[in-house]
Structures are given as C-alpha cells and as structure tokens.
Design a protein around this nucleic acid. Structure first.
Lengths: 332, 332
DNA sequence: TCAGGATGACAAGCATTTATGACATTGCAA
DNA sequence: TTGCAATGTCATAAATGCTTGTCATCCTGA
C-alpha cells in the first residue's frame, strides 16, 4: 500500500509535513502545501484512517445496536443517526440483536474491539451491567427508547406514559370500557412505562384494570399474535386492544383475522409506533407515533456533544407522542 | 490504554505470545496459554482491532452503500447482510446516498479511507467509474440491484425483465389493454430492464406501446406522484399503471387520491418491490416481490468468497420475482 | 550425543500523529 | 544597522497497539 512516506518522498518533504498538509494544520508554508497537494492529487492518494485513529485515539465511528432491523421504528432511527454522522465524517456500524441478550453481548464485545467512539443502543437487556463492563466508563453511551436498569447514560425516548394515556383517552372517547392491553417484552423499561400509563389512564376514568385483560407480548409479531389470541379466548373479551408496538399490532391483526373477526367492526385495535409506509399505502392502523427520524438525529447529537466534552450529567430527552387517527378503531 | 504489552508483563511472557494466545495460534504451550488466558480474564482486556488490522491488512469491515434508507427494500437487504457479516465477525458500515451521486462519491472516499474489505453497493450513478477510481481494483465490489455501466463486478439482482412481464401478464389477464408505466430513475440499469420488459410484454400481446403512457419517475414517492399525475392528465388515460418500485407506487397512490379516484375501481395500480409490513397491516398493493433478505445474504456471501480468494470472473446472481396478488388491481 | 521439533523472545513492520528541536525568518527596539 | 525575541517551517524520532519472521533455546526420542 502506498503511504504518506511515498508521498513525502515524491514531494521531497518529510512524512510529518505530508500529515500536516492532509490535516490542514498550521506551520506549513503555502509553497510546500501546494507541492504536497499536487503529489496528493497526482497519485490519488487516500490516507489510512485506521492508522490515524491509532495515534489520534478517535475512530470516528459510532456503533448503533438495535434489537430488530425489521422494524421501521429502528431503521428510521438509524436513518436519522446516519444523516448526522455522515455530515461529521463519522461511520455508523449497525448491529442487530434480534432481542437476544447473548447476541447483544457479543456485539458489544465486538464493537469495543473496534474502539467505537460512542454507542447508541436500544438494549434488549433488563439491566445495563454488561454494557459498562464491556465498554468501560469512558465511551459515551446514548440509550435509545429503552433504559436498562443501573445504567446512567444519555437517553432519548418518547413519553410512553403519556402515549398510553392518549390511546386510552381515545378509546374511551369512542365508548370503549373494556380495553385490553398486549404488553411489550418483559423487563424493558418501555414495556413498564406503557403498561403503567395504561393502568393509570383507566383509573382516571374509574375503569377497573383487570389482570386478565393484560396479555404478554414481546414487541414482535408472534408475541402480538399470541397475546391477542389469549385475549380473544377470554369468556368476556375486550372490545378494544392496545398493542405495545407496531409489530405486535400486526401479529394481533393476524390473530384477529384467524378468528374470523374484523377490525374495527368486531374489535378495535390501536398501538404504539407508526409504520409510515403502511399508512401511506392504506391508512389503517390508528397509532401514537414517535418522531423517529428526529430521535435518531438527537441521539447522534448527544453522542457528538459527549465527544466534544460538553455535558456532564446524563441527559434525558423526552419526545412527544402524536395520535394518528385512522381506521382501526371504531365506536362501540 | 492497556495493551497486550501490559498483559505480557503481568503474565511474564512477551507480547508476541499474548498475541498468539489471543489469536489461537500454534506454538504456545498449554501452560502458558492458561497463564495468559487467566490474566486476560482477570483484567477483562479487549484487544484493539484497529491496530490489528494495520498489520493484518484486513479491517473485517464491509461497507454497504444504499440510495434510500427509507425504503424497506434496502433496509431488508442490509438486514440480510448484517446477519451474515455478524456471524463472521465482520462489521457493517452503512451509508445512505439519497440517490445523490455527490453523496455517493463522498461516501466512497470516506469508506476507502477506512480500508473496508469489501463494498456492497446499490449505486445511484449511471456509470461505475467513480467507484473503481476510488476503491481501486483490489477491493471486492458486489453490486446490488443495479449495475452501473463499465463496472465489472459481482452482481445480485432479480429478474427485472421477467418481473415486468409478470405484471403485464397479470394486468392483461384482468382485461387491461391500456397499461401505463412509471419508469424508474434515469440511467439506472434496473430502470431500463423493467421498462424493456414492459415494452416486450406489451408487444407479446400485440399491444401498442405508446410513448405517452410512459411517465418518468425516480424511485421515490415524489417521482411516482408526478408520474401518475402526468398519466392522469392524458386525454385518454390508462386503465392500469405499473410503478417501477414500491415508493413510486405510494406516490402514485397519493396522486390518484388527490384526483378523487379510487384504486382499483377507477384505476389499477401494481408495482415492483413489496412493502411486507404494509401488506400485513392491510393487504392492498399487488406487486412483484424480490427475495430481499436472501439477496442481502447472497451479496455478503459473494463478498466473503472474494475475500477468501475464491472466484475469479465476475458472477451474476439473478433471483426470481414473485407475484403477490392483493387488491390494487381489478378487472376492467 | 544429536537431530529436529516445540516454544517463545526480539525486533521489524504496519500507516499514521506529534513532541522536540534545529534552523530560518520577521519585527522591533536600541 | 544590529541584536534579540518571537514566530514560522520542517525533519527526526518516538509513539500508537498489534502481528510475524527470525532465531535462540529447550526438550524429546533415537
């Protein structure tokens, strides 16, 4: 491989000078700058960023770890992150964990081997111990959507609690009194917040929160499907159901159809997190949506600020949830 | 930072030995292996992969460059690539170009600075000159979906030509004789293949291929919308339209609705590339779909084989298109 | 005793950055 | 005009954290 030494030789200067020219540093005369630049141009030389990061102790790389690359919620966030990162000449490595803690652990190990400058993660884990024990205290961490226990780090999320309330308000407004809930994956902060929000909102209306109306999900289609089947098997099933995320809603939908029921005629279904493209094709699911792309951008910003040494205390950015009313819920 | 030298000191061996233990190489006795492993464990040392790649001349990194991170077609492909890569301990850097050649150029430069081991790219460009001139001849390149001119490299795509034929067959089968077409982005191989397929299929049925029935698109929503508006403005508009990809179809849909028309009652609409989640929410768009996840996996495989020195000639993997009949097209 | 393989240390290399210091230039006061 | 400090310009060399070829040493078995 050709290195700055080759350039240096051709230009009749030292490698150090070439390095200075490349990095636009002071203390190199215009004349030598031009001389070196010419050789750089002529040879089409492209410096090795890896070698550079060895000495600079900056890899200009962010790691993004998400639990489900299949979910537009996360891919949109990645989109947002990539946009910010590219503008700062920072590479984005993405890792998918499939909601699997073991995969997450491996990914983290792998990413710290590469000495990423920052980690942006929607963790599949209940607690964050494995994250710090792997990355150490020094690498900036930005939590996305989910806050593992015992992990003090920047956090970007939406107001899950309020989101649940918005959905309950909406359903109650349509006359529903028996509102089912398909919870998210066990042990995830988001799951708890959304469930709590649901409970409190019911209380607000003096509605009893029956345990049997709460089914367990996992933020995936299959979990949503099974959760919904459980609710439908109830002797006295709910007239409306809230799914804890978009994929659960899709699973729930398939369960409902399996049972030969229609939405919203026989049952209302709403959920967290939008699937924008789906609604553009055919506006169907009523949801509370998060400003996903922005969340990604903000997460990247937080990481960048940490790198610049700004900020000390962990920061928490909470975004608004927005109700997008479509056709999956009806008056009862 | 702690390095293998520190480990070596603690274990009472040389750094070379530590390196050998870490990389599981021969010529280190079981006893010293254990001794070193213990220190490795105790200190929780994680080697620096960047330093390693400096000597090994392998970064264990793939670059994936796509034109639209918003399109599930590409995110699913990324998903497929990531799966294969993670299994081989290869990092995936993703770059989004927004169909912008300048962004693509910048991304390529950036990625070669990082000396990625392979490039997997769905290029936004007509020709591939900028790719080789940047990466050089040595880095394996796998083309995804699109084949820029003058670029000899492995290619993973689907049978676009046949895909178009399938759609025309289907529409003709429904009685359509006036079939419009919203083309893809100019200068992209896929655009041409799909258009050619459409033309030839019409010919097969002795249908005249009218130039006015072909609108220009760009593989994005806006292009689809404008293309459809143009078709609808025709004195004698088509009874059915084929959009060159999923996003164009969405744009077309919005145009149709703007004009107060209904699909499929007033107009049939079909397109290339599925939006799986959308169809699960509500089965609407009839499409020819590509096996996206597999395509990503195959692309990664091709890259891996190149790295292993297998394969000499450029290979072309062509996947089958599948018609997914739903509700956006009706009998005329 | 000796051949030959196993073991591991040494040192060079990978492509950069950067501290240090040598030398040149400039500005300004004497 | 001279002297001197401040600054600019650049090369040398050390450092970054790891790998690997070379070579000396130690064992083993014949």
């Amino acid at each position: 491989m050709t290195s700055i030494y080759d350039i240096a030789k051709q230009a009749g200067v030292s490698a150090a000078t070439v390095s200075r020219v490349i990095n636009n540093e002071r203390y190199v005369s215009l004349k030598t700058q031009e001389k070196v630049q010419r050789v750089l141009q002529d040879t089409g030389f492209i410096p090795n960023a890896n070698a550079s990061s060895l000495t600079k102790k900056r890899t200009n790389t962010f790691a993004v770890v998400v639990p489900d690359l299949t979910n537009p919620f996360f891919t949109e966030i990645i989109h947002g992150i990539e946009g910010q990162a590219a503008a700062r000449k920072i590479a984005v490595i993405v890792s998918n964990t499939d909601e699997n803690i073991d995969k997450e652990r491996k990914a983290l190990r792998f990413l710290t081997e590469r000495r990423v400058d920052a980690l942006i993660i929607a963790s599949a884990a209940r607690s964050g111990d494995h994250i710090i024990s792997c990355l150490g205290e020094d690498t900036p961490i930005v939590l996305l959507d989910r806050q593992p226990q015992g992990l003090k780090a920047d956090l970007v999320r939406s107001d899950d609690h309020r989101g649940a309330e918005i959905l309950v308000d909406y359903l109650v407004g349509l006359g529903h009194r028996k509102i089912g809930f398909i919870a998210g994956k066990r042990g995830i902060s988001t799951t708890k917040l959304r469930l709590d929000g649901y409970r409190l909102a019911l209380e607000k209306y003096g509605l009893e929160c029956q345990a049997e109306l709460i089914a367990q999900g996992d933020f995936k289609k299959e979990g949503g499907r099974e959760g919904m089947l459980a609710l439908l098997a109830l002797p006295n099933p709910p007239t409306s159901v809230i799914a804890s995320n978009n994929l659960e809603a899709i699973g729930a939908l398939s369960a409902i159809r399996e049972m030969g029921l229609r939405v919203p005629e026989d049952l209302s279904l709403v959920c967290f997190d939008d699937i924008e493209l789906a609604s553009l094709v055919y506006p169907f699911l009523t949801v509370v949506a998060q400003p996903v792309r922005t969340m990604g951008a903000v997460a990247a910003q937080l990481a960048l600020e940490r790198l610049d040494g700004k900020a000390e205390q962990p920061r928490e950015v909470v975004m608004q949830m927005t109700l997008l009313e479509r056709r999956s819920a009806g008056r009862v």
